[in-house]
């Protein structure tokens, strides 16, 4: 094991351990905020795999988040399935949807890919609104009490308990972070970066770039869906506002802020942006103004985001 690899493992494990310890010190309000941040960071990490590592900018990731959310939420609400089972249904919906979208949308590149994903996401949103009998559209559904309790490894767990939610979110974050870390360091990750840097050349070297892109889109969509499924079950609410364009832009914003193409970047960006918006929304209802200003500043002055800048200047080993 090289020393760089050791440093990298140490850093990421350190962040997770820090998050674990943090729960014993946080006041109630921030305890909840960090739970949300961890779940949204999972969403951003899924997005980053596609955008940061492969160079494919999707403007429709809200549909994968919503697939997980509605897959899990609807099966828990209408079918009364248990929490772990509903969570699996959410993930399965993510796999199916991302596979279908990938097969169609990946025929396009560049600007067309962005617009196509944007439009599919819009269709997904309209679909949710159209089947308002089952989804209650904008008003949304509140999960029943039965979907708040479950048994995992012989332990009775209650999702109304903040500590349970915190640690489940942390577990999801840890699993996703470890998988992304392993993925981007391996051969597959290198082929992703090769596609980002020069797809034509990668193709010429004999790689099936369509297949690689399809695989990474499915992984990315599935991770995003797991975040949506977690969000639905933990906060006991699903609504069509989670499928709007806003939720496609958010992971982009988080990723750009933290640093596209870094494992920790999306988490850092999510945390910073979450608190930035949280603080400004105390003063004004126009808190999205901050999001706009941050986007423009990032594009103009820090195209690689915070961690990207750190990596360039000091720590070349950051994955």
């Amino acid at each position: 094991m090289s020393s760089e690899q050791a440093k990298s493992i140490f850093l990421h494990a350190g962040v997770l351990a820090g998050l674990f310890l943090l729960q014993f010190f946080l006041p109630e309000y921030h305890h909840l905020s960090v739970t949300r941040i961890m779940l949204l960071a999972v969403f951003a990490m899924g997005f980053n795999l596609l955008f940061g590592y492969t160079g494919l900018l999707s403007l429709g990731h809200a549909m994968f988040f919503a697939a997980g959310m509605y897959g899990a939420g609807l099966s828990a609400y209408h079918l009364g399935w248990s929490v772990p089972l509903s969570f699996m249904v959410g993930i399965a919906c993510g796999v199916v949807l991302s596979l279908a979208i990938g097969l169609i949308a990946l025929r396009t590149t560049g600007v067309a890919f962005m617009i196509v994903t944007l439009m599919f996401s819009q269709v997904a949103y309209l679909t949710i609104v159209y089947f308002t009998t089952y989804t209650r559209g904008d008003e949304g559904l509140v999960m029943p009490e039965s979907a708040r309790q479950f048994v995992l490894f012989g332990q009775q767990l209650s999702l109304t308990h903040p500590g349970t939610r915190y640690n489940l979110a942390l577990m999801l974050l840890a699993i996703v972070m470890a998988s992304v870390w392993l993925l981007v360091r391996g051969d597959f990750g290198r082929s992703l970066i090769a596609i980002r840097e020069n797809e034509a050349r990668t193709k010429m070297l004999g790689y099936n770039t369509f297949l690689i892109k399809l695989k990474v889109l499915v992984v990315s969509g599935t991770i995003s869906a797991s975040s949506g499924a977690g969000y639905a079950l933990m906060f006991a609410y699903i609504g069509s506002s989670f499928a709007t364009i806003q939720y496609s832009i958010d992971p982009l914003l988080y990723t750009l802020l933290g640093g596209a193409g870094t494992v920790l970047g999306p988490f850092l960006g999510t945390a910073l942006m979450f608190y930035l918006i949280d603080i400004t929304s105390e003063y004004t209802s126009a808190y999205l103004l901050v999001a706009g200003i941050v986007l423009v500043i990032l594009v103009l002055f820090f195209p690689r985001g915070l961690l990207g800048a750190v990596r360039n200047r000091w720590f070349g080993w950051l994955p």
């Binding site: 126009a286 999001a291 200003i293 986007l295 423009v296 195209p303």
Partner: peptide, 19 residues
Amino acid sequence: ATIVATIGILYIVQQLVLI
């Protein structure tokens, strides 16, 4: 970069008008 920047401009214009 242009798409990201114009998304930013979208929010800025829209929210300034809201204010």
